[in-house]
Design a protein around this nucleic acid. Structure first.
Length: 586
RNA sequence: UGGGGAGUCGCCAAGCUGGUUAAGGCACAUGGUUUUGAUCCAUGCAUGCGAAGGUUCGAAUCCUUCCUCCCCAGCCA
């Protein structure tokens, strides 16, 4: 127990356990790979696969990727990397009505952003389910031929009604006993466009009384006269996920097909299909195997595609990349980083238990990464004027501030100290509460990187609002000089010169939903939306930020982490708050 | 009341072919450092593994019964 072996740093989870066992037992030792996906005859012409394992990330290009996908991406690509294997990016584009190129491009960008690619041993493993339509059609034909699929002319409604319920068996379709020859003919006619959408469907012939609903003769091909983003009008019949996915995995020689828990009931069909196609000589052993893990649930967040689409379409957010969105493009614009997501996925682990991760866990990960990587700057978010009375009007002095407190190699920058400064309203209290140690009459604080000052009072307008705080500085207490420690103070406040400060607009984001589990108690998750999830304010920045550009990230000291927005211009600086610093006071 | 899964500290999560005092992370608490009430460092944090029985010298790990939660009846994925 007292030997924490430094080599054993890989996390432990049930999927890694399976992989390690498989590798140890040489399950894939004879597996062939012929440079690209294909059926048995294709791969048999290849050689032993150099990839020890093959995983895949199979998004449907019908929306943007979200944080839940990040978990799957780090899992699949991470596993491949750790075990000297390949991870394919495969677009599961079997439903032309919902899919398009915009989403394909967005998904590719997101995965690259997270730091992954799909190259292995000179192969670019970027595939589309639609690449396999021809092979899938042949597979369907072979199934019909061997009597394991039939064309059903019932309407969708009739099929639904004859499926039975969870506790009662379904009824056989009147077309179930049609002969292969007839089915083959009809299926071909379906393909040729002889029938309208919905006129008939190809079904697997398994068992209408199965306690597993997925085995009650599931539909595997449907008619859709729709233009596909890749194959255009070449097809008017399209395979269903159920049928397509196992075949995609097999053709790509996937070893571990990792998906989420809701597909668990689908696994018997997955295995049934592959076994039939193996028998029909279309596929090789070893066949891919499906493993399921619990999808990510984050408190205060919705992660279902349907809901995200609704938020966008109802203009409840400003598009897919709204910084409040849990999409990867939204998170990126918010200032969340790939390293932060990596830490997050490592921290939450992988298992089969349904779980809800606290949103603060994600924020903590971002803080942890950003604390390390961000240069520091000063910004006053809620400005109040501070006047140093014992300084002449034109006083100007450079103050040296390190770019990073723990990384002196990153150097320092200078900030101009002048007689009039902007400080935070919250850093002054005329009548301090208990334990408050910032500015109040009679108290001393340090102007960070500058001098210690003594507060002498404040001025108010006729309504009693504090409009100006007054103080006097203590010579010889400047930061970095020998006398700087001569006066000990507990408070340390930041400031910017009223003369040199830059103006900017900052968007302060809060969670998009008010409740931990949106929609759980309120029936409709939209009722739980937080109407005050963004607040835009005018702030003052230190002069060194004059050249800040979109995507630049900084820590604004004592506030948090911020990123320059993509719409920012030098005339109109726009900044997003990524996450605040931890605050244990109050 | 069919089938498939899951229940280990506030949140995750190892362990689960039975064997000393139940890993680890996060959170939290208390000290210390600190010119960010941040960071960092140190220490603490489950006689308990959904519950009840049982087997055993010994059980989170095996058996029995029960409880709770999640998923499945798209020509979606």
């Amino acid at each position: 127990m007292t030997n924490p072996s430094p080599t054993n740093t890989l996390p432990s989870n049930f999927i890694r356990a399976v992989i390690e066992k498989n590798i140890e037992s040489n399950r894939f030792a004879e597996k062939k790979w012929n440079g690209k996906p294909g059926d048995k005859s294709h791969h048999n012409k290849g050689s032993i696969d150099k990839a020890k394992i093959r995983t895949r990330f199979p998004p449907e290009p019908n929306g943007y990727l979200h944080i839940g996908h990040a978990k799957s991406i780090f899992l699949n690509f991470g596993l491949a990397k750790d075990y000297n294997g390949a991870c394919h990016l495969r677009f599961d584009d079997t439903n032309p009505e919902k899919e398009n190129e915009e989403f394909v491009k967005g998904i590719i960008d997101n995965i690259k952003w997270l730091g992954f690619d799909w190259n292995f041993n000179n192969d670019s493993n970027l595939y589309y389910a639609s690449d396999y339509f021809e092979l899938m059609y042949s597979a369907a034909e072979s199934l019909i031929h061997s009597g394991q699929a039939y064309v059903d002319k019932q309407t969708a409604e009739q099929i639904k009604n004859s499926r039975g319920t969870l506790t009662t068996p379904g009824k056989d379709s009147p077309w179930r006993e049609n002969q292969p020859a007839e089915n083959l003919k009809l299926f071909k006619e379906m393909k040729l466009g002889k029938y309208e959408d919905g006129a008939m469907v190809l079904r697997a012939k398994i068992n209408m009384a199965s306690p597993n609903m997925n085995l009650r003769d599931p539909a595997i091909y449907r008619i859709k006269h729709a233009k596909h983003h890749k194959t255009e009008n070449q097809w008017c019949i399209y395979p269903m996920y159920t049928f397509a996915h196992p075949i995609e995995d097999a053709l790509e020689s996937i070893t571990h097909s990792i998906c989420t828990l809701e597909f668990e009931d689908q696994r018997p069909f997955y295995e049934w299909l592959l076994k039939q196609l193996l028998k029909n000589d279309l596929l090789n052993e070893p066949l891919p195997k499906q493993y399921e893990f619990a999808r990510l649930n984050l408190t205060y967040v919705v992660l279902s595609k349907r809901r995200l689409i609704e938020l966008v379409e109802k203009n409840l957010v400003n598009g897919w990349d709204d910084p409040r969105m849990p999409t990867l493009i939204g998170a990126k614009r918010r200032g969340y980083t790939p390293e932060g997501f990596k830490l997050f996925t490592e921290r939450i682990g992988v298992s089969k238990a349904d779980s809800w991760i606290d949103y603060s866990t994600l924020e903590d990960c971002m803080r942890e990464v950003l604390n390390e990587s961000s240069n520091r700057r000063v910004a006053v978010l809620d400005p109040l004027k501070l006047v140093i009375n014992n300084l002449p009007e034109e006083f100007e002095e450079d103050c040296l501030a390190p770019n990073h407190p723990k990384k002196p190699e990153l150097g320092k920058r200078t900030i101009k100290l002048t007689k009039e400064l902007w400080i935070e309203k919250a850093d002054f209290m005329e009548e301090p509460e208990k334990k408050y140690f910032r500015l109040f009459p009679g108290n001393q604080v340090r102007l960070r990187y500058g001098y210690v000052v003594t507060c002498t009072g404040c001025e108010k307008d006729k309504d009693g609002n504090i409009i100006k705080v007054l103080c006097e500085y203590l010579p010889n207490t400047k930061s970095g000089t020998p006398g700087s420690d001569s006066v000990k103070v507990k408070g340390n406040i930041h400031w910017v010169s009223t003369k040199y400060a830059l103006d900017a607009e900052v968007s302060l984001y809060d969670r998009l939903f008010k409740t931990e589990h949106p929609g759980k108690k309120s029936e409709n998750y939209l009722d739980d939306i937080n109407l005050e999830s963004v607040k835009k304010i005018k702030i003052k920045l230190e002069e060194n930020l004059v050249n800040i550009e979109p995507s630049d990230q900084y820590q604004f000291e004592r506030h948090g982490y911020f990123i320059c927005d993509q719409e920012s211009t030098s005339e109109n600086l726009k900044i997003n708050r990524t996450v605040t610093l931890r605050d244990t006071w109050k």
